[in-house]
Computed example of a mutant assay.
Amino acid sequence: MKNIYIIGLLWACSTWTMANTVENAQQVDTAEQFAKANAIRVTTRPEIMGLWGMEIVNNKKCVEYYNFRGINEVVIKSGQEWSYGLYEYQPSEDHKQRLPALVLQIKHDNNQMDCSGQMQDQTGEVSQYFVKWADDHTIDFCANEKGDKCFATLRRVLP
């Protein structure tokens, strides 16, 4: 009888230990899932990303918009024309020594009249500009990296 009592006691303890082990494993899994779900992700984005506008005064005031979006997509809206393409922004560590470069590749253009009054299909065009930062909300597109041949001023509309 004593043996049966000891065996019963051992069985009860082992069952309690196994249940405790399973409960601990579930707590660890839950903690890992919580950590993964609430992990802080640091994502850097190009400083040029956002919506920019360039005012063009012709017969009437018109704004040409450049929307630099995530995954290097750009949408350009000028008058009735809109274009879609890709961009690559190459920042510079020292804006005084060398200006950041911006490359635009137009994938589609609807070939409508733009703010300048021109209709030109720019599909397939690739252009490179140098970006001169006046401040966080104003940039100039320049033809050279020295920044002395600038031809367009854009102002930030949205971050």
Rank of each mutant, 00 (worst) to 15 (best):
H108A: 04
C62F: 03
N67C: 11
N110V: 14
A143M: 10
I48S: 07
Q80E: 15
K2E: 09
T30N: 10
Y65E: 05
A143C: 13
C13D: 02
E23Y: 02
I4N: 07
Q112N: 04
Y84E: 08
M1W: 13
L99V: 07
C142A: 06
I71T: 11
V131W: 06
D94V: 10
I139V: 14
D148W: 02
H137M: 07
V75K: 05
D135I: 05
N24R: 15
A31C: 11
E73S: 13
R156K: 13
L158F: 01
N58W: 06
V103P: 00
Y66A: 04
K77S: 05
K132C: 12
M49F: 03
N110A: 08
W16L: 13
E93W: 07
C115T: 04
L9Y: 04
Q120P: 01
V63A: 03
N59Q: 14
I76K: 09
I6W: 02
D114Y: 02
G50V: 02
I106H: 04
F141P: 01
E47T: 11
S78E: 00
R69M: 14
P159N: 12
Y87S: 01
V103S: 10
I71L: 11
V74R: 00
K132T: 08
A101S: 02
W133S: 06
I71Y: 14
R156Y: 01
Y84K: 08
T138H: 13
I48A: 00
W82H: 12
W11T: 14
V103R: 01
K149T: 14
E81G: 02
G117Y: 05
V74E: 00
R98S: 10
P159A: 08
W11S: 15
V22R: 05
L154T: 04
A31V: 02
E81W: 01
Y66K: 05
V103Y: 01
E73T: 10
V157T: 03
G53H: 01
E23S: 14
A143D: 13
S83W: 04
S92N: 12
Y84M: 08
V28I: 15
Y84D: 06
M1V: 12
E93R: 12
P91V: 08
T30D: 12
L10E: 08
L154S: 07
W82D: 08
M49K: 05
P91F: 03
N67Q: 09
E81F: 00
T21E: 06
E145G: 10
A101E: 05
Y129L: 10
V126S: 11
F68K: 01
L102C: 12
I48C: 03
G124W: 07
V131K: 00
Q90W: 07
Y66L: 06
Q122T: 14
D94Q: 06
I48T: 03
F34A: 02
D148E: 15
A19M: 07
N24A: 15
V57K: 14
T30A: 15
N144K: 03
